[in-house]
Each structure stands twice: as structure tokens, then as C-alpha cells.
Design a protein around this nucleic acid. Structure first.
Length: 768
RNA sequence: GGGCGGUUAACUCAGUGGCUAGAGUGCUACCUUCACACGGUAGAAGUCACAGGUUCGAAUCCUGUACCGCCCACCA
């Protein structure tokens, strides 16, 4: 036979062949002798272990040192000889090898076999070998006594809790991981041979008698005892010290030296931290919890076990929801870990970007599927240069101190060199704390600028609001005093609050974060705040506008509070100082802290689709005018003149908001209506229900404008062709839902109208 | 070997069968205008990994392939 662990021959108790292997059939039942020990062992047949086409087809069986061999040993009632001590040396069963390290013995066995003439050949072979994560040494299995928890009933109860919905996973697919794993119902090995942890609650007593134990423990349901099969006498399972106290000093009790699997202890966390087994008020109030938030690799190790111990000890699940979040990987897609040294120090990030900025950014990562890559850099404390992390040829992260060769400080702690300023500094690492007073290269990542910039924006927009509400007075808001932008922000606020609430209920933190960022920045700041500036400067319009602004900001702060708690709390206090009574529906005394303010639930009737469409048109026109200004490089100080050709209802709507053209695009709306003519020498833009002209007398570059219009026409023709093709497709018109077909028709009509305008404008332009 | 994800702009990610596929960062041009340059305005940038299929219609659903990540099992 062949083996990669020759020393295990010392513990062999059989040689195994396949029952149908013709080469060896005649040998089954005979014995062979292990030459190293002169021990005879049988040749057995076992179809599950031996494979005819592997090597010689004969395999040695070491039941005490290999899992497959162990199973084979059980099947064939083989003796099991443990040849190892717990420190990896050969024990007394190893004969003359006893006392040697197993790797030493491995060499010696090969040598001895050669001397005796039984050695055939050595052959290179690649095998997967399990290594200890901590010591990086190969794992040598050996037979030992361990404590197990019997799982079938416990596992079934925990499975039932998920299948009947008492515990729900978000995202739901992770229920499969949980159920598949518990479904195996493997007994749980709970003992560990470590020096720390909960001691196993088992005591041994060599001097006790059964009568004594019976008498002492007859009323104790939670104490069990039995005669130990080995030589340690009675074995008593009880709460800590209970047995010792009850039996008194006449007996010497020895506690089992093993400790519990760390996950066994952790599994008790939801109830034991609340005082269990005492029936405390906390336990009563907080158990079961609402939600457990964790990483997917913890589902089997911890989540499943918390559910099963909770059900066993408390008779109820420990939590109703399990939210599984994505993992944050390093910039190279590898899991962050302390040993790899590719982790992130959150304190560095908080120092640099702020606590709210870090929280907001991380929240934006928390989607349902995609793990997040987070490329990190070191920031040189001397010159601010950002030093990117890199991988070496083996794919290992380059250690910072080796960027240009090792640099060590007075304390012996490594430093890293800066490639820019060449100065060295200690750096942030989980391996050691930097020396006090030493400049430290922090770990930073530009991705957190997302959160930092947002916090800055929120702060400044709120500062603007606070500066403009100094003479605020509380009063109900009169709906008839509201302008288009007010109705619009009400409508948007209602949709946004509903969206955020829904996303949070599904634990879709990334979606909630995006919705709030987009609303705050692109709608509230970019449009709403800009649009109300003139009103805030106008004595007669100021008060209503202030009340709406205060009400909107109030609601926004409440929505943002879970995402950026520090900034919103600070702003909330400032808002309370100037406007303690506020509200979009009716003014009310506001909560003392945003943390306890009610979650916003604005009426859904505020949502007004047609109003939002009108607002979109206004935005589109303003962007088109700004675009013309940019294309013609007209300075921001120059006032432009806008003429809009459109139906009278559209014209009326535009006249209503005429002030905004001046406010947002430094443009006067000169005329709007059906009879508006294109002024000569003007740049223009087309919407589906309006054409706009900016008079550019003396400035216009006819060729450039003509090119611009032709490009626009070309784009429109492309879209039109696409839409036409769809409608010409008979099956599309017949089979697609009516609404979809109608939408395409409507869009096509609009595009065609736009194209007509563009073509007309182009022809007029060439005649100017 | 089994399972679960992923592959969309230079980077990091959204996109839950039907708008011209989006955002942030970065990039280009202009602007220090009385909340904000950690900013504003405008703009450029995509063979939606690949190959088939289903469908009137696919980034989206199905099958397969390649690569990446994780969990579990196995390993003379």
C-alpha cells in the first residue's frame, strides 16, 4: 500500500481491499504483519473504503487517526489504537517510536522500512491537507472523548420555527442555508480543549455511592448523574458548584477540564444576557427580540443555535427577523481578516470623515446581493499622499512596512515609508497600537466621501434654512398661499417617506439611503431651496414660505435621523430654538429630540402626478436655457430673453412661474402662447408641448446652432424609427398590454411633434 | 463534489420583463453668485461576461460556458 502518513502504520489495525478485487480476493481473512511492531492485523474487505483503481487497490486502515478509517473500523469492529499524545508526539502504543514527534517518526518509519527491505518507492503527490487556521500546521486527527449534544429534536424544533414563519429571513433565500444545515441533524460536539471559556458542567466523584446521590439530588430535576464507563466513578451534571455544595466536603469532586464550544456559549446570548435562568424584568420585556442582523457565514454557527437553545430554554424563538447583510471585502475582493491584515480601522474613518458620514456610506452599501469592495489607502501623516494597497506575486497583501524595506522605530514597531516625501510613519493595523505621539498613517477610502459630502450638504442647506427663519412665527399654513414648488415638495415628500418606510421594512438599507440622498440633494437643495429664495427675501411672502420650509426640514430630519443621527439631532435642537412649534398640517410643539420624534407618515393624498409632470416641464425648460448659455459661453451675469411657443394652457402655467426663469436661469420670460413667433437669430429647444427660443441677436453662431439642431433632429429620428418599428410589429400591437402600446403611441406623437419643430427651426435659421 | 451569490461607464455600485440603461467618485469646460468649492452649471463616457433559448418585447426569465467570492462536504 501507499500512504502520505507512514507513521500511522503504528496504529493500523487492518489492511482493506475491495471485495470484488480479483487481485486480492484470495487473501481476505488472512493476516499480515506490521514489520515495525511485529503486530498481526487482518486483511478485510470493505467496498466503502477500498477503491480498486486507486494505487495498489489495498489501503491500510488506521481507525484512530482518520475519519474514513474510523467509519470503516466501526463497520468491521476493528480495534482502534491511538498512537498520539495531545502534543503530537507518539505515545506508548508506538513502541520504540514512543516520545518522538510525529514528523520525526514519519522519517524514522520510512528509514526503518528501507532498512528492512520493504520500501518500494516515493512518489510526489499533491493532496489537499487541512491546516489549522491559527498555527498554519497540518491537522492530525486522533481519537478522543468529547461531549455531544443530541440534535434530532432540537434541530427539528428550530427548523419548524422557520418553516412556520415565526422566524423570517431577509433576504428570504437564506432560510435555505439554515434549513439545509439543520436538516442534517448531526450531533453537536460541544467540548473544546482550550484554557478559556465556559467549563463543561460535569463533575466526577470517585467516592460517592448511588444511595448518597439519590438522597441528595432526589428533588433536583436539573441534576443528572450516572456511573462513568471509564474509571472516574460517578459523573454528575449540574449547575456550577451546586453538586459541590450539596455533597459537602466529605467528597472530592473534580470538574471536567474541557470548556464549551464558543458557539454553544454564544447560542445562549439572547436569553442569558437578560438574566436567564432568573425570570428577570429585562428577560420578560426584551425576549424575544425583533431582529438579528448578521453576516451569512454566521447563519449556521450562531443563528441556528440561538434559535434552538432559545426554544429549548425559553420555549420561544429569540428573534422574529434575521437580516443578512453583505460582506465588505478589501479592494481586491478578499474577505477582510485580522490575519491577512486587510481590515479597516473604523476609528480612522470616523476621525477623517465623521461618524455620520461613515454610517451613511456603509448604510448605502447594504443591499441584498452584492458584496462590497472597499479599496483602502494609507494617508501619509507628513504630506497627505495617499498610498494604495497592493498585492505581491502570491496574491498576498503587501505589508506596509515592506514598501521599501523594513523600517523600525525606537520601540521596535514597524514604520512605513511614504513614496512621495520619503518620511516614515507608523500605521494603523490590528496587530499593534502605534506609540503615543508617533505620527500615524491612517487607513482611508475615498468611498466615504459620499457620506461626508452628503452630511456637508445637509448641514449647509439646514444652515441656510436656519439663517432665513429668524423671525419665524407658528401658524397654520394656508393652502391657497402655496406656490407650485410647495405643492411639488409636498408631493415628493409624501412619495419619499412612503418609499423609505417600505425599504426599511424590507431591510433594504441601500435603497432607503439612495432615496433620501436623491431627495435631499437633487430635489430639496437643488430645486426647492433655490426656488423659494426670492420669497424668503420678500416681506409679504416670507412667513408662509418659512412655515413650509420649516415643516419640510422637520420631516426631512426625522427621515434622516436613523442614517445620520448626530447631525440631525444637532439641527433638530437648533430648529427647536427658533421654531419649536411647526408642522405642515398644523403647527405642533415638536419633540425634545429627533430620536423620539414620530416617524413621518405624510398623507398619500399629497402625491400629485400631474403636478409633478408640470414641474418636470419647468425643470426641462430651465435646463435647456442653461444649456444654451453654456454652449454659447454667455456669462452668468447676462440676462437672456425667452420666448415660448405653446398652447394657451401651457402658457398660463409658465406665466405662473415666470419669476423662476429669472431666479434659476437669469432669463426673462418675454412671451408665451400660440402666436409667439421665433425671433430671428435665436437659439432654440423643443419639448413635446412647447418650443423655446432664446434671442441671441449679434451673438449667434448660425453654423454652430444649425449643427446643434441637426444633431438634435438626428437623435429624434433615431427614437422615432425605434418606436415606429414597434408599432408596425403586428404581434406587439396585438399581444402587448394596451397601456404599453398607448404609451408608445403617445411618446411617438410627442417625438414627431418635436422633430417637426426642430426641422422648422433649422430651416428658419438658415434664412436668418 | 453540493449549495448560495456575483460579472452593467475608468473605479464602486443601483436597475423587482416595456420610457432614450442610471447614480456616486473620477474625467472635460465654465463659474469663488449673499447655505455649501466637501459647492454650482453644462458635458463626455456602456458589445449590460459569453453562447443559446423563451417572449410581441430580455440587463431583467430559462439552459449552458468562463471567471470571481462565500458556505458545506470530501481528500490512500
Amino acid at each position: 500500500f501507499s500512504t502520505t502518513r507512514p507513521e500511522t502504520m503504528l496504529g493500523d489495525t487492518a489492511v482493506c481491499v475491495h471485495p470484488s478485487d480479483e487481485r486480492y480476493q484470495h487473501l481476505i481473512g488472512k493476516n499480515v504483519r506490521i514489520p515495525l511492531l511485529d503486530r498481526d492485523i487482518p486483511i478485510i474487505a470493505d467496498a466503502l473504503l477500498a477503491k480498486k483503481d486507486m494505487g495498489t487497490g489495498a489501503v491500510k486502515v488506521t481507525p484512530a487517526h482518520d475519519q474514513n478509517d474510523y467509519a470503516c473500523g466501526l463497520r468491521n469492529r476493528l480495534p482502534m489504537i491511538n498512537i498520539l499524545n495531545s502534543d503530537g508526539t507518539i505515545n506508548k502504543n508506538g513502541g520504540k517510536y514512543s516520545g518522538m514527534d510525529c514528523y520525526e517518526a514519519r522519517k524514522q518509519v520510512v528509514e526503518d522500512m528501507q532498512t528492512m527491505g520493504y520500501f518500494v518507492d516515493v512518489e510526489e503527490r499533491k493532496i489537499d491537507l487541512a491546516h489549522s487556521d491559527r498555527s498554519k500546521t497540518p491537522i492530525e486527527p486522533y481519537l478522543s472523548d468529547q461531549w455531544f449534544v443530541k440534535m434530532p429534536e432540537l434541530a427539528q424544533a428550530a427548523m419548524d420555527a422557520v418553516t412556520d414563519g415565526r422566524v423570517k429571513f431577509f433576504p428570504a433565500r437564506y432560510a435555505k442555508t439554515y434549513l439545509d444545515w439543520l436538516g442534517e441533524k448531526r450531533d453537536w460536539c460541544v467540548s473544546r480543549q482550550l484554557w478559556w471559556g465556559h467549563r463543561i458542567p460535569i463533575w466526577y466523584c470517585a467516592t460517592c455511592t448511588e444511595e448518597e446521590l439519590q438522597q441528595v439530588f432526589q428533588d433536583q430535576d436539573d441534576v443528572a448523574y450516572r456511573l462513568d464507563a471509564e474509571t472516574r466513578g460517578w459523573l454528575i451534571c449540574s449547575e456550577t458548584n451546586l453538586a459541590e455544595d450539596a455533597l459537602g466536603p466529605s467528597h472530592k469532586l473534580i470538574q471536567d477540564e474541557d470548556v464549551l464550544d464558543t458557539w454553544f456559549s454564544s447560542a445562549l446570548w439572547p436569553h442569558s444576557t437578560l438574566g436567564w435562568p432568573k425570570k428577570t424584568d429585562s428577560l420578560q420585556y426584551f425576549y424575544p427580540g425583533n431582529v438579528l442582523i448578521t453576516s451569512r457565514d454566521i447563519i449556521t454557527l450562531w443563528v441556528a443555535r440561538m434559535v434552538l437553545t432559545g426554544l429549548y430554554n425559553m420555549g420561544d424563538v429569540p428573534f422574529c427577523h434575521v437580516h443578512v447583510h453583505p460582506k465588505i471585502l478589501d479592494g481586491f475582493g478578499q474577505t477582510m481578516s485580522k490575519t491577512k491584515g486587510n481590515g479597516v480601522n473604523p476609528i480612522d474613518l470616523i476621525d477623517k470623515y465623521g461618524a455620520d458620514a461613515v454610517r451613511f456610506t456603509i448604510t448605502s452599501f447594504a443591499g441584498e446581493t452584492q458584496d462590497v469592495r472597499l479599496p483602502m489607502q494609507y494617508e501619509c501623516p507628513h504630506c497627505g499622499t495617499l498610498i494604495s494597497q497592493a498585492l505581491d506575486d502570491d496574491g498576498e497583501l503587501v505589508k506596509p512596512e515592506t514598501l521599501q524595506g523594513p523600517l523600525r522605530g525606537a520601540s521596535g514597531k514597524p514604520r512605513m515609508p511614504c513614496p512621495q516625501c520619503k518620511q516614515a510613519s507608523q500605521f494603523s493595523t490590528p496587530q499593534f497600537d502605534p506609540d503615543p505621539g508617533e505620527p500615524v498613517a491612517r487607513m482611508v477610502s475615498e468611498r466615504f466621501e459620499y457620506g461626508r459630502n452628503f452630511c456637508n450638504k445637509l448641514w449647509n442647506a439646514s444652515r441656510f434654512a436656519l439663517l432665513n427663519i429668524e423671525n419665524y412665527t407658528a401658524a397654520p399654513i394656508n393652502r391657497t398661499d402655496l406656490m407650485l414648488e410647495d405643492h411639488w415638495i409636498f408631493s415628493r415628500l409624501s412619495s419619499v417617506a412612503a418609499d423609505v418606510t417600505e425599504s426599511l421594512a424590507k431591510y433594504q438599507f441601500d435603497a432607503a439611503t439612495r432615496t433620501l440622498r436623491d431627495f435631499t440633494w437633487n430635489e430639496f437643495c437643488d430645486w426647492y431651496v433655490e426656488m423659494i429664495k426670492p420669497r424668503l427675501r420678500d416681506e409679504s411672502l416670507r412667513s408662509t414660505s418659512q412655515r413650509v420650509l420649516v415643516g419640510v426640514l422637520d420631516m426631512l430630519l426625522r427621515l434622516l435621523s436613523p442614517f445620520v443621527p448626530y447631525i440631525t439631532e444637532d439641527l433638530w435642537q437648533r430648529l427647536n430654538d427658533v421654531a419649536s412649534e411647526r408642522g405642515l398640517i398644523a403647527p405642533r410643539k415638536s419633540a425634545a429630540s429627533v430620536m423620539i420624534a414620530p416617524w413621518p407618515d405624510p398623507p398619500s393624498e399629497w402625491q400629485d402626478r400631474s403636478l409633478e409632470v408640470r414641474f418636470d416641464r419647468l425643470q426641462t425648460i430651465i435646463v435647456a436655457v442653461r444649456n444654451i448659455r453654456a454652449v454659447y459661453r454667455i456669462s452668468p451675469g447676462t440676462t437672456l430673453k425667452l420666448y415660448v411657443q405653446c398652447e394657451s394652457d401651457v402658457a398660463a402655467e409658465l406665466q405662473d412661474v415666470a419669476g423662476q426663469f429669472d431666479n434659476l436661469a437669469k432669463t426673462t420670460l418675454e412671451a408665451a402662447g400660440t402666436n409667439v413667433q421665433r425671433p430671428s437669430e435665436s437659439a432654440s429647444f423643443s419639448l413635446d408641448d412647447a418650443d423655446g427660443f432664446i434671442s441671441l441677436e449679434g451673438i449667434i453662431n448660425r453654423e454652430e446652432e444649425l449643427t446643434r439642431q441637426r444633431k438634435e433632429a438626428e437623435k429624434l429620428r433615431g427614437f422615432i424609427a425605434g418606436h415606429k418599428k414597434k408599432l408596425e410589429n403586428k404581434s406587439f400591437v396585438e399581444r402587448a398590454p394596451e397601456e404599453v402600446v398607448n404609451n408608445v403611441r403617445a411618446t411617438l406623437a410627442g417625438l414627431q411633434k418635436q422633430l417637426e419643430s426642430v426641422e422648422k427651426i433649422a430651416s428658419q435659421l438658415s434664412k436668418d
